[in-house]
Design a protein around this nucleic acid. Structure first.
Lengths: 231, 231
DNA sequence: AACTGTGAAACCTTTCACAGCT
DNA sequence: AGCTGTGAAAGGTTTCACAGTT
């Protein structure tokens, strides 16, 4: 409806841009590093080498160093990285330090699982509102939160909120539209359907069956190779 | 992400290599195309152009054509693709036609959500065994299946089974080891921890909080740009 | 005319290898 | 000596643009 304000300034940016522009592939790994760092911190380690951290994170050390270098120079040559400091920096980069509100819509099994999922709370990303369209579920207590009706959406959304969709596929687009209308500009979709959002809204998806199908492909291939291929 | 073993013979390959070798990026999109095709089929469409299919799948049409070209020439120039035929081909490529056994370990909220998830059953990937270490849960009926104790693992695993781990993080590595010991060579991990497997075992992971953290990054960046950047 | 299949170009990501700091 | 940070090389992915087919 208002595409004018978002127009392409991509080509003409003489701005004194700082170090920014962390590659997308790096951003996708920061959460992994963060988790690895927490494991090390819980274990009492205060410093760690790129080699050791990479091991825990399950990546190779050159990649890890390159990734971290995009955030700045937080390591000490000859020594390694300070675990606590690096946790701070990575968290900051991910925007986990300012408390960011997360609103979850749909409290079926998946919604419940997400609400109780330790991985959110332990970072700065606790879910702080549960909504559902089913009035039978409204009022229910899940993971310390009371389920509210989706009509109350506007009351629970604040600037910078992230919306999570865990509804059945048929309801997803409608819920998505309502989130957008309420001012949410970042949406995570767990429903197995492609959603469309206006420009300016960031949409990501998690397809639970996708990875399983990818595994199926590889398993299938292994079977095929074992049978027909070996020369 | 683990084609390391393919690099060594890169220079000296006189082998009569067939058409195989579908790029990993393409494999990762095949499930998306498959879902889009099912949508079209349910809608009564019999043929579809790369443009239209790409639209439904949410990708660009050149990419879609290139992806499909790796499977073979299943389109007709001037016309497009036959929906039913393409569903068949993509399903075959993903190994979804032969019924592949899926064993899920851990029936907490997430396990329940996965067991009831429509996205699995509608493709060839129905879960056909539920296991848990908690004897209180054994015997429970979920999505038409009876929960069995994890000690019965060997009874439910067959050649080519895929294992799904939906346990708490602490139990995941142990469960993983047991799956491997039982002969499972493809494992999908939903527990928020890095697992290690012996060579030859295919391990993939889904981190529910990862995408949320990536969204947080972008939301954070949007906020930063809105405030400090427009100089 | 319409649309696929595909080389070639552009772009992004990973890995290597080593200069440079502690 | 040990380890980070980073150019440069290698490898992979996406996009372009059009030749080729129906």
């Amino acid at each position: 409806m208002d595409p004018s304000s978002l127009s392409e300034d991509a080509l003409a940016t003489p701005a004194p841009r700082r170090q920014a522009m962390v590659p997308e592939a790096t951003v996708a790994r920061l959460p992994i590093y963060l988790r690895a760092l927490h494991v090390l911190a819980d274990d009492g380690q205060t410093t760690v080498s790129s080699e050791a951290l990479a091991e825990v994170a399950g990546v190779n050390s050159a990649k890890l160093r390159k990734d971290l270098s995009h955030l700045g120079s937080y390591g000490t040559r000859g020594v390694g990285y300070d675990v606590a400091h690096l946790i701070e920096q990575v968290s900051a980069e991910l925007g986990l330090l300012r408390h960011c509100s997360v609103v979850l819509v749909g409290v079926g099994n998946l919604g419940r699982a997400l609400a109780g999922y330790g991985g959110f709370a332990s970072r700065g990303l606790a879910i702080d509102a549960l909504l559902d369209a089913d009035r039978n579920r409204v009022g229910e207590q899940i993971a310390g939160l009371t389920v509210r009706h989706i009509d109350e959406l506007c009351d629970v959304v604040s600037k910078g909120s992230i919306g999570v969709i865990a509804t059945p596929a048929q309801a997803a687009q409608q819920v998505c539209d309502r989130l957008v209308a309420a001012g949410v500009t970042s949406i995570l979709n767990f429903a197995p359907t492609v959603l469309s959002v206006p420009p300016g809204v960031d949409l990501r998806k998690v397809d639970l069956s996708l990875e399983l199908q990818i595994l199926s492909f590889h398993e299938h291939r292994k079977a095929a190779l074992a049978q027909g291929a070996p020369v």
